[in-house]
Design a protein around this nucleic acid. Structure first.
Lengths: 155, 155
DNA sequence: AAAAATTTGGCATATTCTGCCATTCGAAGA
DNA sequence: TCTTCGAATGGCAGAATATGCCAAATTTTT
């Protein structure tokens, strides 16, 4: 299902990416519509799957998830069986926020969230490297956040 | 400001991480409270900064941001001046969703979003490698998404 | 230029939010 | 164990918001 977004749609999406809980009345003012057609557009964007969902963004440090680690993983082999088992394992770990299969230098990239370095090492030693598919892991540990955005660029 | 979260708070946070636009009435039912104390708790979580914000999550592929790339960057030097200029440049690029300074193998890790491989190469050639601080860049290009979560693990 | 299709704005109703107050619950002390 | 005090809860009333419908306006098509 492909939908062409006009400038008002993009305006709506920009606003909702910044404040997903803005009232429809205020959103309508912001984009220069009356509430009815504004709500109609939002519903269409939702039904088309362009708006996937609404979420609350928590402060990681304040809920004991202050450390983000990027891990690159090498598999023992690249066959479908190994990949599938890796995927299943990874989906079970709540610490793994994102996981992608890559081509090139490594086989998978993960974004992992834990409380601190100690609990990350425990996770890596006890869980990540124990997934049978995993040959080795290299990590990049962020020391400082320069940017963290939730707004996809529109056009 | 440190706040101790009781099981109900965590329940609220779990629900809001999945559906940031649930009505307070439904949220209250879900966590077993009446609407008043439920809303009061949500407001406290917001004021404490535990809930940072609410956002709409868009489908990247449907808004022309289908490709996520992880880039590792090496600086020419690691002094504060270079780092600062890099930070300023990176914050200006809407394609850069996340950027962290790292210690260890590389100097910075970025998550970059573009429409496709071609527009990524243009971004890297025209913008990223032209930041004066940047010595070299290595990229990991995801071929498939195994997991993409927006829920920080709570405890 | 006329007609069709889409989009818009306004209105009425239902639902939800918000602030206030009495009550209840739980912890600390006698 | 009983009493007291503070915090959290539940319910209520008024305000604000969401929702669905229909006529008017706009845009597109012929």
């Amino acid at each position: 299902m492909l939908i062409t977004l006009d400038p008002i749609d993009r305006h709506i999406l920009r606003v909702l990416q910044r404040d997903g809980r803005i009232s429809n009345v205020d959103l309508a003012k912001e984009v220069g519509l009356s509430p009815s057609p504004c709500l109609r557009r939002v519903r269409l964007l939702e039904e088309a799957g362009i708006i996937d969902r609404y979420v609350a963004v928590l402060d990681p440090a304040k809920v004991g998830a202050g450390l983000t680690v990027f891990a690159r993983v090498w598999f023992k082999t690249q066959d479908a069986e190994v990949t599938l088992r890796f995927a299943e394992a990874v989906r079970r770990f709540p610490e793994v926020m994102e996981c992608y299969l890559t081509t090139g230098e490594c086989d998978a990239v993960l974004r992992i969230v834990t409380a601190d370095l100690h609990s990350y090492w425990r996770f890596q030693a006890d869980h990540l490297t124990r997934i049978p598919s995993v040959l080795s892991v290299k990590t990049d540990v962020p020391m400082e956040t320069l940017k963290r955005s939730f707004e996809l660029p529109l056009r």
